[in-house]
Design a protein around this nucleic acid. Structure first.
Lengths: 124, 124
DNA sequence: CCTTGACTTGAAGCGCGCTTCAAGTCGCAC
DNA sequence: GTGCGACTTGAAGCGCGCTTCAAGTCAAGG
C-alpha cells in the first residue's frame, strides 16, 4: 500500500491534485490508515492513463465519465469512438500547425506572418 | 472596411473576444469611425491563423509573441522550431490516444480500463 | 507519553480565456 | 434634428484545473 506522498512522487502529481481528482470521481483510495489515504499500486497505471488523457486535452469531467464506463456501456463506448474521430481532426490540425512552424524555420518571407505558405497551412 | 460585428460574424468569434485579443496585442483595428473600430479585411486571415493556433493549444500570450516576430528575429524563429518539436510530441500522444479509443470500440474487455491493449497505448 | 511533522478538511485564491454588466457615446435611418 | 440600437469602456464575473491556506488530527519515532 502506498500513501499519498508516495503516489504523488511516483506520478509527478501534487498531493493536492490527487485529492482534487478524488473529489471529481477519477480516483478512489483503497483505504485509510486513520485519516490518511492508502492506495493500491494499481492506482499508478490508472493515473498514467489520466495524465495522458489530460495532456491529450480531455477535461477532468470527460475522463471521469470514461473511467466510469462499464463493459456493456455502449453509449459511452460510442462516445469513445466519436472522441477518436474528434482526435483525428485535432491531429490533422496539429500536423498542419507543425508543418507551418517547420516552414517558418526556413522561410525568408518578410513579415513571416504574410508568407503564403505559412498562412495556407493554417486554414480551419 | 469591416466593423467589429462583421468581423465577428465572419470569424465566428464574439466581439468581446476580438476586443480581448486586441487588448492582448494579437490584433489592431486599422482605424476608428468615431469610437467604433474599423478593420481591414486582412484581419480575417490573421484571425484564421489565431483561431487555428488557439485550437492547436497555443496560449494567447504565445500567439502574441509569434505574431510580433520580425523577419530577422532569429530568437523567435528558433522558438517556432522548438514549438514544432513539442507539437511532434503532442501529435504522437494524440495518435496513441486515438488508437486506444479506436481499440475501445472493438474491445470486449470487461472493465475496459483494465484492457492491456488499451492501457499499453497510454504510456507517457 | 510526548512531540513533531505529514497528513486531513473545506474554503478561498489564482491564471487563463473569455463573457457579462453598467454606464456612457454616437452613427445613421427616419 | 431626433431617437435608437449598436457600438464604446473598465471592471467584475465565470468555469476549469488546480494550489494554497487555516485549522485541526494523528501515526510514528524518541
Amino acid at each position: 500500500m502506498l500513501d499519498i506522498a508516495e503516489v504523488a512522487r511516483r506520478t509527478g502529481l501534487a498531493p493536492s491534485a490527487l485529492r482534487f481528482y478524488e473529489k471529481k470521481g477519477l480516483l478512489t483510495p483503497s483505504g485509510r490508515n486513520g485519516l490518511r489515504r492508502t492506495y493500491d499500486p494499481s492506482v499508478l497505471s490508472r493515473l498514467t492513463m489520466i495524465i495522458c488523457a489530460r495532456r491529450a486535452g480531455f477535461t477532468v469531467a470527460e475522463i471521469a465519465r470514461f473511467l466510469g464506463a462499464g463493459p456493456a456501456d455502449e453509449v459511452t463506448r460510442a462516445d469513445l469512438v466519436s472522441k477518436a474521430r474528434r482526435l483525428d481532426e485535432d491531429i490533422a490540425r496539429l500536423v498542419r500547425m507543425r508543418d507551418s512552424l517547420d516552414h517558418a524555420a526556413v522561410c525568408t518571407h518578410e513579415p513571416l506572418v504574410e508568407c503564403p505558405d505559412f498562412k495556407r497551412m493554417l486554414a480551419p
